[in-house]
Amino acid sequence: MTTAMETLENVDSAQLEGLHRALEDSAARDGLLDAAYRTLDTPIGNLLIAATDRGVVRVAFASEGHDAVLDALATRLGSRILRMTSTRGVGGELDAAARELDEYFAGRRTAFDLPLDLSLATGFRRTVLGHLREIAYGSTESYAQVAEAAGSPRAVRAVGSACATNPLPVIVPCHRVLRSDGSLGGYLGGLEAKRALLALEAAA
């Protein structure tokens, strides 16, 4: 036997999940969301994918701490952020991003066809991201080459920090930028992840 108060306390988690999905739909319908997110398991770890109604806005590595990343997104974009479990609306866009990333990691996709929201990068960093998107699958450039292409040949260091703060790693391929001597340079997701991405693209 269960006491009345215990019964009043008892909540079915499946029911809460259903309510969460309905909230996602209503929030998207009413245009209430500043951003939405989901996660995806990949060969380089669990990735967080966040999107606004303009497009994918952030991809984050597990090593960045997804909670910290979400807190930062709330500060930058607004706190009305929900995890998407349904595949409608914004959830559908996140689903498409997850599908393309899956295909990429399986070696079946060499370019991403997704609307991107680059609002987390400003000024020169954004210019650099624009150029990074032009570096083809399987090829690499040096930080100096990217600086030159971005119109500021002496800004090699600034290119390095633009790569290090790339809000959309993997999709905007900062992993394709190496030091002039061919060594890896840095990577937000760790050098092992950078090595894995370059190996994946070399093998395809």
Partner: peptide, 16 residues
């Protein structure tokens, strides 16, 4: 302000 999702996670059952 923390993301609203964490509010739903923490208080969803209580509000229900």
């Amino acid at each position: 302000m923390r993301p609203f999702e964490s509010v739903v996670e923490e208080f969803g059952a209580r509000v229900f």
